[in-house]
Design a protein around this nucleic acid. Sequence first.
DNA 1: GTTATTTGACCATC
DNA 2: GATGGTCAAATAAC
Length: 297
Amino acid sequence: MARGKELAKQLRNHLVSSSWSRKTREFLVEKILSCYQKSLAMLNCHAFVAEHGAAFSIGTSGSPRNEGDAYKKRVNSDTGLEGQPEDGYSWRKYGQKDILGASFPRGYYRCTHCNVQGCLSTKQVQRSDQDPSVVEVTYHGRHTCIQARSSAISPAPVVKEEPPKETTNRQETLLSSKRGLGDDVFSLLSFSTPTVDSENGEGDYFVDALMDDRFMDTFSSPAASGSNYFSLPLDHMANSCAPNSVQMPEAILTEIVSAPTSVTKSPMGDAAFSAFSLGKVDFNLDFPFDNPDFFHD
DNA sequence: GTTATTTGACCATC
DNA sequence: GATGGTCAAATAAC
């Protein structure tokens, strides 16, 4: 955003001097818009992560029962094993409870590695009243265990598509479809950026920003300091943000929202990401660039 | 024998 | 007191 501001100031000077060609001015305007679009994309990217329990989970140390860490999806169990959808992780059932108003009991599962590796990830599985072939899976906490990659890349379950809905505990319903997970991820990101006008092609900016080398360099650079903590999720996100791109196994999608590793090991630290702790950002392309006060020193 | 599941009891919260 | 979540002993499966 500072870059955008600097470019805007240059443009203002050029407008005053009138020594630059129209093409140069238009170029500057495009650069300014590009800067702000990328900035907003970064903000929205974090908002998405924060809302889904999230790969980064910056600043959410403490109880895994944090409500903000919950993530919910509906899975068609027809293709699952014994009615239990496979999500790439191994779970151990530790309880079952009849839930008021629900026709089917809710199953409680925790990560098999909870004892050995101290993984605190849990999930709740409940069969839908409306459609018994559908189970609602709610994930809590994040996997801190290391599970065999081969098991994580299991065939993706068929996930039923349904519109996003407001739920308690800040749970979100993952939009998905049978067309492929590339679409799934994009859909998920789309409702996090509701004001994008995709018909005008402006919706592509989010993808562009994430695929931008400078963007990736900026946020993947901690890998150079000896940790790949951020580089892995961002690789996923780069793919995630690209519609119709390489299809992602469900397990990877799961990994995105219930991510591994300790927050405190982040080389960027809480402070670095605290600037992003703004919640969902509804950006508006009608941003008042023509307001001279905005660019005022 | 080991591991996973079942299920009633217990606890915390509202 | 009702409800949801977890514990732990009993049981089943391998």
